[in-house]
Amino acid sequence: MAIEDDKYILQVEGLYVNYGNFVAVNNVKFEVLKGEIFGLLGPNGAGKTSTLSAIEGLLKFKNGTIIVDGQDVQKKPLHARASMGVQLQSTSFQPELNVVQILQLFSGVYGVPMSKDQIKGTLKDINLEDAATKKFGQLSGGQQQRVSLVIATIHNPRLVLLDEPTTGLDPQSRRQLWERIEAIREKGHAVLLTTHSMEEAEAVCDRIAIIDHGRVIAIDTPQSLIDKHRDEPEVIAVSRRGKVTLEDVFIALTGSAVRA
């Protein structure tokens, strides 16, 4: 791995994660480029969350190398984490704090002080001006996700990790979040997201990796994966409307059995 190659913001090489004798992540390798939205797709239990947790530094891994913005997450964990912003699927903030107080708290935590005008501008940018004094628990799911993404990116990280960011959102909230994710890419930064939504993967991801049973089984652009597999009998067999979709390819590659 050329860790000094500055075209990558994230490099994962030969990653193994074990839980006792169970191998959850098995020799996973992929890179995320600057200015790229990269999707990590897989059935439940495929190894997505373990891979994400290892990148975040929350999970010790058995073997492999993870480089974030040129920093090895094992050798220089604090430097690597400083380049990351993380939005989890379910994020909880202090229940007694309102939206403004949460922004003030985390801007201080990250050493990025924000004036009242800057906070007001941020809330205007995410259409939450009228919710400034609301407690986090009083916000809708879409509003909570917008606040969570602001907190995850308040220190302008080079890599943003999003774990199923649009789960449970209505179409309008989902589209708004997609636009904010795309704005991160336009800065030349990178986004790694996990999702179960094939529509989301096709709509926002430049490239995707499909992981199953701990192994990466395909990496490419969504359209290239469709084009590559569209004529395979397994894909044709699961196609429901005559037009092959990314979901058809995904099911053909990972199987139709429901995972626990």
Rank of each mutant, 00 (worst) to 15 (best):
D6S: 14
K7V: 05
Y8P: 05
Y8T: 06
I9N: 10
I9V: 15
V12Q: 06
V17P: 09
N27F: 02
V32W: 12
G39M: 03
A46G: 12
G47I: 11
T49A: 00
L59E: 11
T65Q: 13
I67T: 09
D72F: 13
Q74Y: 09
K76D: 07
A82C: 03
S83W: 07
M84Q: 02
G85Q: 14
G85Y: 15
V86T: 02
S90L: 01
T91Y: 13
S92Q: 15
E96P: 08
Q101A: 13
L103A: 06
F106Y: 15
S107F: 14
G108M: 07
V109S: 02
Y110E: 03
D117C: 03
E129C: 08
L139N: 06
S140V: 07
S148D: 01
I154W: 07
P165M: 07
Q172A: 14
Q172D: 14
S173D: 14
R174H: 13
E182P: 12
I184P: 00
V191S: 10
T194E: 04
H196K: 08
C205R: 09
R207Y: 12
I210L: 04
D212A: 10
G214Y: 06
R215D: 08
T221I: 10
P222F: 00
Q223V: 07
L225S: 12
K228D: 12
P233Q: 03
R240P: 02
S256P: 05
S256D: 06
